[in-house]
Design a protein around this nucleic acid. Sequence first.
DNA 1: CGCTTGGA
DNA 2: TCCAAGCGG
Length: 335
Amino acid sequence: MGVKLRDLVHPANLRLSELKGKRIAVDAYNMLYQFLATIRQADGQPFTDPEGRVTSHLVGLLYRTSSFLERGVLPTYVFDGKPSDLKASTLRARSLVKERAQAAWDEALAAGDLELARKKAAQTSRLTREMVADAKALLESLGVPWVQAPSEGEAQAAWMARRGDVWAAASEDYDTLLFGAPRLLRGLGAARGASRGEDTVMELLETPKVLEELGISQEELVLVGVLVGTDFNEGVHGIGPKKAMKLVGQHLGWEATLQSAGLEPSGVEAVRELFLHPPTTEDYRLRWTAPDPAKMREVLVVAHGFAEDRVQKVLSRLPTAAPTPGTQTSLEAFG
DNA sequence: CGCTTGGA
DNA sequence: TCCAAGCGG
């Protein structure tokens, strides 16, 4: 998944409390898949409503988002649009992994190995159009803006961060850096000890620092990605992050570097173009408003069988003042 | 994910 | 009072 840059970068720790008052563009699919993988029963079954429709993504989104809002963090969720044609083989590979995981899940259940079953089940997660629509409806009910990306959500989030509409982009994938985000937040979805008012510790990567540390340019970072492989190209067999950095660090230029690695430059030109100039849109408006209790009830209680009192409890903790900076001065609820 | 519970 | 386990959906 994504580009393997983990071994090259040194993230700083950041507490959730330090995000107070900041706008964050969250890679929605990335986070929803985390919820689908995590929020399951012991045997691996996801949460479902009485009709058998999956609700794990809604559970995660509801509790995590309300937790952000309670702490004065302003999330906006960016949803993937049509994937690039370059991603086709990656998507096929993922589909195959899911099929195999499904078989392994069944097997583990038959063998009575619950731990393995849960692990395999996590890899079978799929997001349907209906699940995405439910997630968007829930966000609207919470007064949280969402953005429809024309293609890659990470690219859109990166662009929003670059133009200053949000402070950072949040995703687990490092592709966000290749798409030019000035700041990448990791670990926003997996709340370690977020309950009982604890302060979640996350990772922050600041692109200028990353580039300075590596001694390369943004374009050369994309080159590193192309060498080790991304969702949009295979990379070179035998070249991992370390060798790729050694090669790119020689500053031979795009073509010479690729040729010395045995890659035909014309074959990855489209990948370079995708990372440096991805499809994005300006067609969005970031406005955080008060939650709509009736709509929350509609989406969660009526449509999906959530317990009324639990939804009510979440609602009671949400700030009632619209916290959109610039349009709101009274932030009593955020004290 | 986050809350509730119950045993130490 | 703390925390792991179980629940919710």
